[in-house]
Design a protein around this nucleic acid. Structure first.
Length: 117
DNA sequence: ATCCTGACCCAAG
DNA sequence: GCTTGGGCCAGGA
């Protein structure tokens, strides 16, 4: 192995990979019947202010994650048209109730764990 | 380097 | 309730 490869192997993973990994973990931790906002997922993963990137990851990883459980601030569905309808339907099938156009956050907000041993 | 974009967010009006 | 402008950030062209 030449030193170019060695250097590559030793280099820490790019920040973007760490972020995505943390995002995925947070998203997967949302139980059925609960939801979290893009901003909450980002913050829980340790990257506040990265809410837009959570959306970017969700888009990039089509179907691999429980994407329907991530919503906009206040429980808003941010996907448009058919996609938004599908998200709502999926959530309703998991037992999530809506108040008008938004998820009833009082009832279905997921609380990420903050302290951990 | 610069410009544009996005499954965002929130304080204002 | 609503729309809007400004703020935020990394990726891609």
């Amino acid at each position: 192995m030449n030193h170019h490869e060695m250097a590559r192997k030793l280099r820490r993973a790019p920040k973007s990979d760490q972020r995505d990994t943390a995002f995925r973990k947070a998203i997967r931790s949302i139980p059925k019947g609960k939801v979290a906002t893009y901003g909450q997922v980002a913050a829980a993963a340790g990257f506040p202010l990265y809410h837009r990137h959570v959306a970017q990851l969700l888009q990039k990883s089509g179907g691999t994650l429980p994407w329907q459980r991530v919503v906009g601030a206040g429980g808003a569905i941010k996907l448009q048209f058919e996609a938004g309808l599908e998200q709502r339907t999926r959530l309703e099938m998991e037992g999530v109730r809506f108040r008008g156009k938004r998820v009833d956050m009082i009832e279905h907000q997921h609380q990420f764990k903050t302290w951990e041993f």
